[in-house]
Nucleic acid binder design. Structure first.
Lengths: 109, 109
DNA sequence: CAGTCACGCAACCATTGGTTGCATAGTTGA
DNA sequence: TCAACTATGCAACCAATGGTTGCGTGACTG
């Protein structure tokens, strides 16, 4: 579980102490320590508070998902995708490849 | 809390019974009933399983967030990013633009 | 109307998240 | 150098709650 790591990360990014978080989330400092050490997990209500406080998605907190990783997940579990979905997923790789091919063709000219 | 509603929604969308979910998630049928009635919340590990099984984001499950809302949130809260973060975020757009510029330059040749 | 399916309710139990209190390491300043 | 303070981790305890088993009920169905 990556959650503890992520919470600590976001906290330190803001130069907050665990005690600082205490006030913002209304829990004891120990709870926060536990969360960060993966010795316990915050309950759902507090998870929402945390994601709101840090302005990050729950997926980013819990799964450590970045946008990119998320696409991979979707891809791995999508049983079938139509043409449009394919484009929506892979335009970012098709685009530069197309660009490179174009430049190569121009070069041949 | 919207979670129960969302789970039920995704389950019924697939015409699954609670018992069907039982096998896929390795919990008793009662637990699932409780989740859907907001009489209990699945623990984090199972939440991840659920989001993977249904192929939806955790935010969508827990907050009821749509993709759109999610993007707005993410975008609106990025406070500052250093050079590297910028690259990490935007390489996918810089890449194809570079490709297009290259092809254009080759064309001028 | 017996059998079955899908689901909710109630009671019990075990897990675990949260709290209080104490210990430790690092830092600061007289 | 050593008290004082800060930031964090560890241990023990307790209450909350998630999960399970067992039972009840309404809706179909042959």
């Amino acid at each position: 579980m990556i959650l503890g790591q992520r919470i600590k990360e976001e906290r330190e990014k803001r130069n907050w102490t665990q005690t600082d978080l205490t006030e913002k989330l209304n829990v004891s400092r120990q709870s926060i320590s536990k969360w960060e050490l993966d010795s316990a997990y915050p309950d759902i209500e507090r998870l929402i508070q945390i994601s709101d406080l840090f302005n990050v998605t729950l997926d980013s907190l819990i799964k450590g998902d970045s946008e990119l990783q998320r696409h991979i997940t979707v891809k791995g579990t999508d049983d079938h995708m139509n043409g449009w979905e394919f484009w929506a997923h892979y335009w970012w790789i098709i685009f530069p490849i197309a660009g490179l091919i174009m430049s190569f063709l121009s070069y041949l000219n």
